[in-house]
Simulated assay, not measured.
Amino acid sequence: MIGFIGSVFSPWYRWSGRRHPQNHVCINVATYGPGGRFTMTDRGVSALRQTNARFEVGPSMMRWENTQLIIDINEVSGPPLVNRIRGQIRLTPSAITSVEMPLTEDGAHIWRPFAPVSRIEVDIDRPGWQWEGEGYFDANFGSRALEEDFTYWTWGRFPTRQGATCFYDATRLDGSELAAGFRFDRTGQAEATPLPPKTHLRRSLWGVRRETRADQGGRARQVLNMLDAPFYSRSAVETQLNGERTTGVHEALDLRRFRSPLLKPLLAVRVPRRKTWQFD
């Protein structure tokens, strides 16, 4: 689940000149495995309602109730499997962190890991799509398009016995490198962690280059393909950190490919535009 104000992967937002982010909002839902669905409807400003505790986009919303983030979804998936997905996700952070990491020197892009150690409960209206398990909640903020400042990045969040470890590696457009790692415990305390060596993963089905980090001599491998696009890969990856085998979520993003104007019409098929909305 991703909530967007200024839907960074929307071709409609790009074609608009990115002048009015509130006119390109979205609650993206992706489910994996047999029968998996993908929803990413780009909606206009009439579909957006916000308060300090609520983010509402058309028929779906995220809201804080006491110590839980509750996400109500009512979306229609894109082709080739077009149908409605309804349900609710409840996320309970073990704690909220104070970490905020600039991804560029001028602070134009910021990563904010609000709750890297959380529990989730999922209840979606499909047989077998109900479960509880590990979760996390983070956010990225930016005042420029990603492709204006980066050529490539990878990110990973891996659960550990103490909490979770996250890695952020990126190549900026000017050739400089970002390499960062954090360990989080269940009380929300964070500390920078020494970076283990990079290790390569197989390229994605679309040939996106992928790498993560693992102990010296350790290896990493994909255990589940989650989302595959010409410029993006999301997968469950098993690696070894401080002698512990762990499986977490890994992303790789090729922004040279994303920059290509040839991709935008293809994306428009998967990301429909719904300009107007009327709340009851």
Rank of each mutant, 00 (worst) to 15 (best):
R161L: 08
T160F: 12
T193H: 12
T212G: 00
G128S: 06
G128V: 07
F137Y: 14
T151I: 09
E191N: 04
E132N: 04
P196M: 06
W131D: 05
D228W: 02
T187A: 05
L146K: 00
R161D: 08
L227P: 11
D185H: 07
Y168R: 11
G107N: 06
D138L: 10
W153N: 01
V237Y: 07
G181P: 12
L195K: 15
P127Y: 01
P230E: 10
R161F: 05
R219M: 02
A179L: 02
C166M: 04
W129R: 09
S204N: 13
A139N: 15
Y136T: 12
W153S: 00
R161P: 00
F114C: 09
V208E: 09
E148I: 13
G207F: 15
R172L: 06
R221G: 01
K198A: 07
F167M: 15
R234H: 08
D149K: 11
G217E: 02
D125T: 12
A164S: 08
I120H: 09
I110G: 00
Y152G: 00
R186K: 06
R112V: 10
N225G: 14
A220K: 03
I110L: 15
R126G: 15
G128D: 03
E147S: 06
N140F: 14
F158K: 00
G142S: 03
P194G: 04
G128I: 08
F184V: 02
G156W: 02
L205R: 13
I124H: 09
G188L: 01
R234T: 01
D123H: 15
E148Y: 12
W153F: 08
E134P: 08
P194W: 09
Y168N: 02
E211A: 10
T171M: 10
D228E: 15
P197Y: 10
F158I: 06
P113K: 02
P194I: 05
L103Q: 14
G207T: 01
D174H: 15
E132H: 03
G175V: 10
Q130C: 06
P230Q: 02
A192R: 03
G207L: 06
L195G: 04
S118E: 14
Q189I: 04
W131E: 07
R213C: 11
T160W: 04
V122G: 07
A192G: 03
Y152N: 01
I120W: 05
D228G: 10
P194F: 05
L224C: 04
Q189E: 12
D125S: 07
I124F: 14
W131Y: 13
D228V: 12
T187G: 03
T151K: 09
A180H: 13
A229E: 00
A108Q: 01
R209D: 11
G207K: 03
F114H: 15
V122I: 09
A180I: 07
R221K: 14
S176R: 13
E132A: 07
L146A: 13
L227T: 13
G107K: 08
L103P: 02
G107A: 05
G217N: 09
D174V: 05
R172E: 09
D228R: 04
P127H: 14
E177P: 01
D123F: 07
D215I: 07
Q130M: 03
E132V: 05
